[in-house]
Design a protein around this nucleic acid. Structure first.
Lengths: 154, 154
DNA sequence: TATTGTTATACTCTATAACTATA
DNA sequence: TATAGTTATAGAGTATAACAATA
């Protein structure tokens, strides 16, 4: 359905604009959004973002250089690192989320309240079904695995 | 609204998968989709895709190298070139569109018919309103401006 | 002078393959 | 041997600034 594709480009464009305002890319926004309630390993992040782990290494590198996230050594597996958001990163994602809400509000300004409610319900349904289909839990955080409190340098 | 963002990522991911199947990127799909019923100049393409014109130069370069599009000199303005889709490019975009419809069908499989109808209506509405807001006509092709029939080499 | 398109350059994002350290 | 993560490398996509050709 062409309308779906066009809608995606429209919303994606809105997201990109607000991300750019905060000097971020969409993937960086997604990364910070995921880290709001998780401390995943690189491999887990790769699964969540559907990226190769080497791509995640670079992604986290750039976010870390900007002080948005940090790496922490796992206490149970010497090979793993956990990625977590910093206070600065949390400020950035909160500001970005607020700006995005404003953009979405403009997009749906012409819709009636029932239309918005239906749209949200349908969107949630589609996302949940797709996540289940590909075996990824994008809605709930996992219990935090043991990890040390000392950052990893890189 | 978080559901909208998640929906965008989900649909975007579906689009990217089917694009990759045909060895294309999303932006190349968008380019070919636009060219189905237009022969825009580089500057017009930049406005339609919301990209800098130098980005469009590279985009068209890569599509042209693969025989998907071609450049044609304008007859009224010696500075302009018109970009048009080739028969091969049309085959590719048609195949891609069909595959994408299949992916969307999977995504909306769980929805009732009325839900799908509402979703399409809402999506169309949002896209049209946003296009109007930014002064771009993404729905209708412009009258083809005069141009020569001899391709430009680059 | 202004506009159209390209070039030069730099950066982000992404993947594949090879590597290391740990399990 | 297998897994977690990084590095090396290559390529697409993007923007800014400077440029040539044309208007």
């Amino acid at each position: 359905m062409d309308a779906m594709a066009q809608l995606t480009f429209t919303v994606h464009g809105a997201l990109a604009r607000i991300a750019a305002t905060n000097d971020l890319s969409i993937i960086q926004i997604r990364l910070l959004g995921l880290l709001r309630d998780r401390r995943p390993t690189i491999t887990e992040l790769a699964a969540l973002l559907q990226l190769d782990k080497s791509s995640v290494t670079g992604l986290v590198d750039r976010a870390q250089e900007r002080g948005l996230v940090q790496r922490t050594a796992s206490r149970v597996d010497g090979r793993s690192v956990h990625v977590s958001i910093t206070p600065v990163g949390r400020e950035v994602i909160d500001a970005g989320s607020a700006a995005f809400e404003g953009e979405i509000a403009v997009l749906v300004a012409d819709l009636t309240i029932p239309q918005r409610t239906r749209l949200a319900a349908i969107a949630t349904h589609i996302v949940a079904a797709d996540a289940q289909r590909r075996g990824i839990d994008i809605l709930n955080a996992e219990p935090s695995p043991p990890e040390s409190s000392t950052p990893v340098r890189r």
